[in-house]
Amino acid sequence: MSLKPMPEMTEISKPFWQGLNEGEIRIQQCNACEGWVFYPRRHCTHCLSHDLEWKPVSGKGTLYSYTLTRIPTLPEFADEMPQALAVVELEQGVRVNTTLVGLEEDEIQVGMALKPVLDQVDAKGNTLLRFTAADKALDSLPYENPLDSLPRNDKGQVQVGVDNPVALQALVSDQFTDWSNSIVVDQELINAFAELSGDNYWIHTDPERAAKDSPFGTTIAHGALVQILQSRLTFALPFEITGFQTMVNYGSDRLRFPSPVPAGSEIQARARVKSVQQSRKGTALTLEVNIHVVGNDRPSVINDLVILYR
């Protein structure tokens, strides 16, 4: 459910979130005064010492207070209604803002004994700390990838309806596709593009002068040429968007040419879904396409391509 706000861990809080992801609840204790501290900080809230140590704890506690919401606090939480928002006091005395899970409304009482439930909320393993009654069997909530239940086409791509915002968000990933096929950008191709576009600057078209005067020691391809060669580079997206009337190339949110493509280079491409946003205009899927010279870690083209479905 990545539509909900997600925690963005900091250097300070990393041990807490990483602990949850690894199935362990860790909070800080002060070595100077033995006071416990939550949420994570650089200093002790009891004595201001900076000598804090992360300690694994059971996560057992009691319900300090709670409320059941009858109107979602944000539209994204409509699936949790009523949200059982809770303040839990851990055995160590610190309080945690959280939610209760696996309980009927009439089972909830201020002061009740609670135990932690580790709730994995995305495919990356990000985990939130929720709670349930101490006598319940529930210990964790495994992640259910919204893409897993969707059909696949004959290419093996998962079919995501344009009207399925949760599944669309699950497409967003830091992981790029596998590399595409590769092609060679030779001088002949560069010359043809120079002729077509009218951009016949010597740095692209005059190998002799480029050998002498260019910082690259050879001619290089036009950035715009490498950008459009994307059409010859086929990368396999793991999904197919379905259920739309029209699909248009809406343009680019970002277009950069961070490194040159010397004439004769072999190039390849890969992509990832950077974001999916819904607006009155439709569903905008931003595909970050990177084109590299084979063997170069630095991309030659970064193109955040916006595809608009409606």
């Binding site: 949420y39 944000l74 949200q83």
Partner: peptide, 16 residues
């Protein structure tokens, strides 16, 4: 702190 430790749980706004 509230962005990191409240909002992901839906703790937000004054009402709750």
């Amino acid at each position: 702190p509230e962005a990191e430790f409240d909002l992901p749980y839906g703790h937000m706004g004054q009402n709750t």
